[in-house]
């Protein structure tokens, strides 16, 4: 059983919801990333999504685009990202790490090579934004062999046939994109999300995480009531972007604590 699965089981038995923050690797600087990951765990992260910087992040809004650009300016790409996870693992072997990124960097270093590198770094799951199930069968197989979860996105426009198709390949959890749009977009309609999440749960026993529009503690609280996990990305990157280096960790801690309290 993967660490992601055991984490969800534990939370369920404690009647709690998972908090999954997202940060981009190498932003604002590669020597801050591991510190930020530990801070996220200390302040309530149950798992972490770590973004692999990509030059053309077409599913991301301006906030995460800028994070990618800053990381790339710091020479951080897919290889350095995996190295940073390895470094994080020196002090934390328990918190699941999920890499989130686009197909091209993964294919550039080779899917087999990628899977063996992330296995070595004890990565627990992968979300590849532009790998729909039809185009990623080989990749999913390779990940399965190494007990690494393949996490797929579901959107408000995903119909029941596709939900079936996706849930057949997905492991770990399902990631419901709460709105039509890019990351960090407008506010979400919680009733609609609730309806969709309960529809998805008809097709799968996997936990369902909700993300893409969670902007504050209040939204996080509402999302936690109707799902198994809350993903918060652009809001955290806002802190990265607007904080002085010396205040950054404390600002992240404050934000995380506020959200953690709201969903507990």
């Amino acid at each position: 059983m993967s660490k992601i699965q055991t984490t969800f089981l534990r939370l369920k038995s404690e009647n709690k919801k998972a908090l999954i923050p997202f940060v981009t690797s190498g932003d604002p600087h590669p020597n801050m990333t591991v510190k930020m990951l530990h801070t996220l765990v200390e302040s309530g992260a149950d798992m972490i999504e770590l973004g692999i910087p990509f030059s053309d992040p077409m599913a991301d809004g301006p906030v995460i685009q800028r994070a990618s650009e800053r990381a790339i300016a710091n020479n951080v790409g897919i290889k350095k990202t995996i190295k940073l996870v390895k470094e994080f693992r020196k002090k934390d072997i328990n918190t699941p790490i999920i890499l989130m990124g686009y197909a091209n960097p993964i294919e550039a270093i080779g899917i087999k090579n990628f899977v063996s590198l992330i296995k070595d770094a004890e990565v627990d799951g992968v979300i590849t934004v532009d790998y729909p199930p039809e185009e990623s069968k080989d990749f999913v197989k390779l990940l399965k062999k190494q007990d690494i979860d393949s996490i797929f996105l579901l959107s408000p426009t995903t119909d029941d046939n596709r939900i079936k198709l996706i849930t057949e390949q997905a492991t770990g959890f399902l990631y419901y994109v709460s709105l039509k749009g890019v990351t960090g977009s407008a506010n979400i309609d919680i009733n609609q999300v609730s309806e969709r999440v309960s529809n998805i749960s008809k097709y799968s026993d996997l936990p369902i995480a909700v993300g893409f529009g969670v902007k504050d503690a209040e939204t996080a609280k509402q999302v936690a009531l109707i799902s198994d996990a809350v993903v918060i990305g652009s809001r955290i990157i806002n802190e990265v972007e607007n904080s002085n280096q010396e205040d950054l960790l404390e600002n992240i801690r404050a934000l995380m604590t506020e959200i953690k309290n709201a969903i507990s």
Binding site: F54, S55, D56, G77, I78, K79, N104, P105, A108
Partner: peptide
């Protein structure tokens, strides 16, 4: 140039060795 994935399709792409366009 190597083969890669951009803008929804797989094709030859100008990119560096870590897949940045």
């Amino acid at each position: 140039s190597p083969i890669g994935v951009l803008h929804g399709n797989r094709t030859y792409l100008m990119q560096n060795d870590e897949g940045q366009i």
